[in-house]
């Protein structure tokens, strides 16, 4: 990546960058170096969502290139990492969207009549497997093993549900942004989020709160 950015700078130098001051060029080098220090984090972030190392690499590369070309917009208003993550989010979503478009259209169709989270309820609307008390769950947030369980549970959802859930809960996009970005109705969004929450809850209940762990 550093090599790639270097080549990009070289091209800039050929195309009339001589008019720019030495200090600006030094700033460019500083920025390129700073970007490099965030690369591993960005790679982990992209990999978490995309579950595909080479696609994640693409997202990160696109992000770093975009960051360099929009460097004027970054005025130290926020942390560099926050700014980069903001760009990366959208690259990740775009990549997932284009990957998902390659699947048959009915792969994601929502059955409005049968959306009760895969048999969580009986015909009368009662819990089939009633949610048990998790006690004080927040202690789990400090356990690294918990996060492995969390990730594995996320992977049990369909890619589509996992993406929508992550956009909302991990990336922190608003409901409106998500509906607009991936072109679904608010009702669909609520159905997907409910299904995702129910799936994640059941899986974590079974694999963390229902088991003994250190």
């Amino acid at each position: 990546m550093a090599k790639y950015l270097g080549a990009r700078f070289a091209r800039c130098h050929e195309t009339g960058i001589t008019t720019r001051s030495i200090s600006t060029m030094a700033e460019d080098d500083d920025l390129a170096q700073s970007l490099e220090t965030h690369r591993k984090y960005l790679q982990r972030y992209a990999q978490f969502h995309l579950r595909d190392p080479s696609l994640a690499e693409d997202a990160v590369q696109d992000t770093l290139v975009a960051a360099l070309s929009q460097r004027d917009r970054f005025q130290g208003r926020s942390q560099l990492r926050t700014w980069l993550t903001g760009i990366l989010k959208h690259k990740v979503i775009d990549l997932m969207r284009s990957r998902d478009r390659a699947l048959p259209p009915d792969a994601f169709s929502l059955d409005q009549d049968n959306n009760s989270a895969e048999g969580a309820f009986d015909a009368g609307g009662n819990w089939v497997d009633p949610p048990a008390d998790w006690g004080k769950p927040d202690a789990a947030l400090e356990a690294s093993q918990f996060w492995r369980v969390y990730q594995e549970c996320c992977q049990r959802m369909s890619r589509r549900d996992a993406l929508v859930y992550s956009m909302r809960e991990v990336m922190g996009l608003s409901s409106e942004e998500i509906c607009k970005k991936i072109e679904i109705t608010t009702t669909n969004l609520h159905v997907i989020l409910f299904r995702a929450r129910q799936s994640l809850r059941t899986c974590i209940s079974k694999n963390w709160f229902g088991t003994q762990h250190d």
Partner: peptide, 21 residues
């Protein structure tokens, strides 16, 4: 329990960037 659990999951999910860090 369900309601508390999905709220806990929201708190957990929002911590993911920190965990990756």
């Amino acid at each position: 329990n369900f309601s508390r659990q999905i709220e806990f999951l929201r708190r957990a999910s929002r911590k993911i960037p920190e965990v990756l860090e």
